[in-house]
């Protein structure tokens, strides 16, 4: 039996994921609703990132390990790809993942690594404890 993903340190991790779910989703909805014509593609990426954070938050909070691993992996790919493609001075097209999340203290870049580490750590206990 693996340790639950929403206990101990996981409690804090889920809360941080929840904050980003709120931030990214709300941000994308504001962008799509008020300035859609400026950069529609960027805002759909923005919404996608919000959904990914929502799924990751829900999966980690309810101990759905497989879904959580998939969501965090997509999140990691997203922040690396968007972070590499984005232009630092292109504020109108910015998403949570732009320039590796520097608008959010680079937490979006660190978070997926912490998430994967936590999933690995909580899962590993299953084999070490009889």
């Amino acid at each position: 039996m693996a340790e639950r993903t929403n206990r101990r340190f996981g409690r804090i991790l889920v809360f941080v994921y929840g904050l980003f779910a709120l931030a990214a989703t709300a941000r994308s909805l504001v962008q799509l609703a008020t300035q859609y014509h400026l950069a529609p593609a960027a805002y759909w990426v923005s919404l996608f990132s919000g959904i990914v954070y929502c799924v990751a938050t829900w999966a980690l909070a309810t101990n759905r390990r497989r879904v959580a691993i998939a969501a965090v992996a997509v999140e990691l790919a997203g922040v690396l790809v968007i972070g590499t493609l984005s232009q630092p001075d292109d504020v109108d097209r910015s998403t949570v993942w732009s320039t590796y999340g520097n608008g959010y203290g680079y937490v979006p870049l660190v978070l997926p690594f912490v998430g994967l580490w936590w999933l690995w750590r909580t899962g590993r206990l299953s084999s070490s404890t009889p």
Binding site: R7, R8, F9, R11, V14, F15, V16, G18, L19
Partner: peptide, 21 residues
């Protein structure tokens, strides 16, 4: 939200949630 989420975790981590908030 942080308070409710922290309330179910009576440990350092529960307090940590409030600290993040």
């Amino acid at each position: 939200v942080g308070f409710v989420w922290a309330a179910a975790e009576k440990s350092r981590s529960g307090t940590g949630v409030l600290l993040v908030a």
